[in-house]
Amino acid sequence: MIVSFNYRNRHSLLERLDPRARWIFSLLVLFAITMFWDVRFLLFFLALTLGQYYLARLTWRETRRAWYFVFFIMTTMVVVNTIITSSGTIGAAMKGTHTVIFHQFTIPITGWIWELNLTVERLWFAVTQVTRILSISALFLVIPFTMDPRQYGATFRGMGLPDRLAYTLDLAFRFVPTLGRDFQLTLDAQRARGYEVEKVEGGLFTQIRKMAPLVVPVTMNAILSGEDYANAMDLRCFGLRKRTWIEKLTYHWRDYLWIGFGALLLIASVVLSLLGYGEFWVPSILLQ
């Protein structure tokens, strides 16, 4: 099994930005988005993050799986929240009175009574939620495709993480393809002993226990090799003093601009919410 990263240089505008600037921007925007429940503001953010997505020059083919995943989770959460549990984070706003459907069920045998009370407010809240989740998803979805894995260590070092921690990241990326190959080897070796991972037999417990012939050798082999890696690193003076990183990152004016833009969005969002904007909002036309 070749486990590899999705990164390839697309020469997009986004890749020309310093990765540190992009992490900072993404986090600032995440906090900004979470201040709003007003779909008008959220649509602005959706446009912004989709704009970033567009700048990354991603194709549908590449991101298809991720979007299906997002849609799946989002649908489950929104449907359950709207129809079944139906209270809502933002309390009062959800207690709408403009009922669309009302129905009372009695659950057989237990005799519990469950009320379905779909109101305009609740449905509109679902629309708001979808906008919000989509904005956040689009914001973070671009990262794996547009950041060079060899820069993660230097990036986080540059953002203030200690040497050892930053190097752990570098090392983790180094091990991924090796362990992917080891897993394939183990899978082949066990299949040669008649092991069939595809065969579904027994219950959940048996099925999980059946993973031991795969998980144990790969894990123990990795742990044993760790001893060698650690020795090799000690022998080359790892962790003795503050290290130099040859992957050099430098901020350019466009990076400051990018961070500044993110900061501006967050400040504006804070100010707006202090002024009382951004609360849950239902178009009055729907409440007629």
């Binding site: 570098d170 990326f173 690193m233 503050k242 290290r243 040859i246 992957e247």
Partner: peptide, 20 residues
């Protein structure tokens, strides 16, 4: 089991990086 860099350049430079 002793190569710690993902790329040749990083691997060869590792010891000198650690010496600062």
């Amino acid at each position: 089991r002793q190569i710690v860099g993902s790329y040749v350049l990083n691997e060869v430079a590792f010891g000198l990086e650690n010496l600062g």
